[in-house]
Design a protein around this nucleic acid. Structure first.
Lengths: 232, 232
DNA sequence: CAGTATCCATTTCGATACTG
DNA sequence: CAGTATCGAAATGGATACTG
């Protein structure tokens, strides 16, 4: 049981549930459409399965999440109460992107980044057939250096192994740069101009890429005007 | 330092700060106008001074709160970043009052309740001069049973000792009932009708009381329609 | 696939007392 | 008024291994 504030204030009562570590991130994943335990895990990879399990149970008991068993498959989904958390998650996200713009090295995660990018591919904009987009992080060592996103009529997949087909476009960028691009901290033009992001492939495909890859839903959030905060 | 999620997601970055226990309640108090350490403590009485101090320092480092020293008096106020937390606190409050309506006995606190009520007295509506409103909780033992709110031209005070003057109105109600009235879980008519809330005093003053005491800002939040959730 | 179980290091926090 | 100091109990949660 989450610890109690001993206050009748609705903010306190809500936070008794919502301020438990990881809770709102699990809710975020459910909002983004994850339904199964291991799908949820992909969105919160640093969370141990035991803890995810515990949080899900707490959310079910609180009436925010519904656990559904059909056959031998278990799925979780938000209840009406859970869906009404959306304005909170959005407000937190908007505030976070405005006021906590700095990312530490520990915040960067290629797997998570590709996972996010892949679920925002605009399949309408990508040419029919099979399209492979490769990503190379020159500053990342080991197996997390190269990634592939494969778009077909059936959907979008991420791979950490070469799918074989030659990529239509290869994106070469520092992990931090691509992360900042995804978040909207920098735009395509700025990333290309800085030289830290380089595209390889046919000119037409390179020009089309920004339409294939939609950025984070929060990327368009207006940022605080730093100049206004400076003394005259 | 608050623990890290290891995610670049703005929700995660924001929650690294905001999901620390007590943090949002301290922000709430600052939004309600508390400026000094001991004033803040009154709004979060179950928080130890050491912990309040720690949270304030964390909020200052995060740029959400500004610590201001003038003379030998210290005051805290929200920065622009902190003021932009208001939509979050409001959204959390609205969600909480809609979806966590049940209060445990541990959530009831006469001191906190009178403190809240006193800062929402509509001084415009109260007659000029000196007006005393007494509160009696028959179900509370000891010194927390009787309270007085004193309204003068200078402001509004709460007392836990008889201020002397005869009260214009005496409110006699169970602690839970007055709390639920304050939150808007029940209205004046309903509380009076149930018989658990009784007013003493001249009829004119008794009728005027609901205009003197404004309820929580969240009291008017529409509640989920429970009937709609039932099977047909 | 969908979790449990166990263990222990670490963190957190409440209580209380004390200070300039 | 505005905190700090200290201490021990309790909770938290990360790592790892295991199960139907």
């Amino acid at each position: 049981m989450p610890s109690q504030y001993g206050q009748f204030c609705p903010v306190a009562k809500a936070m008794e549930l919502l301020d438990e570590r990881w809770t709102l991130l699990v809710v975020r994943e459910l909002m983004l459409g994850s339904r199964h335990f291991n799908a949820l895990r992909r969105g919160v990879p640093r969370m141990s399965p035991a803890l995810l399990s515990k949080r899900l149970h707490t959310l079910v008991r609180a009436g925010v999440v519904e656990r559904w068993v059909d056959g031998n498959r278990v799925s979780y989904r938000l209840t009406e109460s859970g869906r009404e958390l959306e304005p909170i998650v959005e407000a937190v996200g908007r505030w976070g992107i405005r006021w906590i713009p700095e990312l530490g090295d520990a915040d960067l995660d290629p797997h998570l980044l590709l996972w996010d990018i892949h679920r925002n591919v605009d399949t309408e904009a990508v040419p029919d057939g099979r399209t492979v987009i490769a990503f190379v992080f020159p500053d990342v060592a080991g197996p997390a250096r190269c990634w592939w996103i494969v778009v077909t009529g059936d959907g979008v997949d991420v791979c950490d192994a070469d799918p074989g087909d030659p990529p239509r476009v290869t994106v070469e960028a520092g992990l931090r740069t691509l992360t900042r691009l995804w978040r909207g901290d920098v735009d395509w033009a700025g990333a290309l101009r800085s030289g830290d992001l380089v595209l390889h492939g046919e000119p037409q495909a390179r020009r089309a890429l920004p339409r294939w890859l939609k950025l984070s839903a929060l990327a368009g959030t207006p940022r605080p005007d730093r100049r206004a905060a400076l003394p005259v």
